[in-house]
Amino acid sequence: MLSDKLECVLFDLDGTLVDTAPDFIYILNKLLVNHSRTAIHAEEITSRVSNGARALIEYAFEIDHKHEDFPDLLSQLLELYGDKINATESTLYPGIEDLLDTLNANKIPWGVVTNKAALYAERLLAELNILTNCAVLVCPDHVQNRKPSPEPILLACEKLECCTTRTVYIGDHLRDIVAAQESQTISIAAAYGYLGPGAQAEDWNADFIARTPSMIYKILESIQFR
């Protein structure tokens, strides 16, 4: 049973709530082929999805953000992504739908705090039919500083009128855990997500580690709130 002291649960989006890798594998390789380059292995893309579109361009085209071609390539990738959302291959991770249903049934608000732009985040959540029940969505558009700054999580808590120490934040990247720690929320590392090459969730000092999405509910049940 969930504690009545649990006020809200916040999720990162890519690699935590939703498996968005299939969309990024498709659009990045399409962009590479459009530029007469060889497509790269799905695993190489998947492990870097949480780092965002800019990092994918840098990796795939072996350039940095200062390169003269970078802005145009990024624009092309985002245009492809915008089109892909209309026929998204992204899915909720197994067990996440049941978790959200349980939170809804217990009247515990849940939301998303992501570094994905609102234009894409809103459309993706709508395509997956979970936007209506999402109590808050905080994107870089809504704050001055994105994660790992605590600002987005603090804004979400403010909007929901939730106490940070009774809020749980779940994410699959070190920046998520840092943001949770600095906002004084309880952190769960989503070790099933896109950790990145060589990354180990054990190194992040999260309060808890979820090896699978189904572990999240058990962790929520076990938390002893102050």
Rank of each mutant, 00 (worst) to 15 (best):
E182Y: 05
A117N: 08
T132C: 04
P109C: 02
Y93K: 03
P140G: 11
R146L: 03
T88E: 03
C162H: 08
K107C: 09
V112S: 10
A156M: 08
V178L: 12
I177G: 07
L103R: 04
S149E: 09
V136S: 14
N115E: 10
Y93Q: 00
L119A: 14
D172L: 06
C139K: 02
P152E: 08
K107F: 10
G171F: 01
V113K: 02
R175H: 11
S183V: 03
C162W: 02
E97T: 09
I108M: 01
T88M: 02
T167V: 03
I177L: 11
E89M: 12
L160I: 13
N86W: 04
C163V: 07
A126F: 00
K116S: 11
E122M: 00
L128Y: 09
L155Y: 08
L100S: 10
I85P: 01
P152Y: 04
N104G: 04
A117V: 10
C157N: 13
I170C: 07
Q144V: 08
V168C: 08
D172Y: 03
H142P: 01
K159G: 05
I170E: 06
E122P: 04
I96Y: 00
E127A: 12
G111N: 10
P94L: 00
R146T: 13
H173I: 02
S183R: 01
L100K: 04
S183L: 01
A121V: 09
A118C: 05
P109I: 01
N106V: 03
L174P: 00
C157K: 02
P140R: 03
Q144G: 11
A105K: 15
E127R: 14
Q144W: 01
L131M: 12
L174Y: 12
L100H: 08
T165D: 15
K107Y: 12
